[in-house]
Amino acid sequence: MNEIGLMHILVISTSLFFIGVYGFLTRRNMISMLMSVELILNAVNLNFVAFNKFLYPGQLSGLFFIIFNIAIAAAEAAVAIAIIINLYRNHRSIDINDATTMKF
């Protein structure tokens, strides 16, 4: 119980993942939804680093995945925020409940 092992990190990353999913499904502000997606991506990063350190210390593929993952998350956030700004110009709101021009 003295050392932090793989199990501790996995518990944290899994809870981070589900907090992200919960936030994505319940938050109504688009920026908050984007932040929830970032939580999911960070849970993935934690997973990769933990597996790489504890199970496969000789490999690098997990670490490389994280570097690319961070870069892509930044690109995705940039495009998403640009789209949300444009949406704000048209709708005057970033609440997802107001973006209901189209409904089935």
Partner: peptide
Amino acid sequence: SEAAMKLILSSAFASGILLF
């Protein structure tokens, strides 16, 4: 712009699940 917002949020969410 509404369509684009729905596309990017859901595809980001989907790739998050895929990555996990």
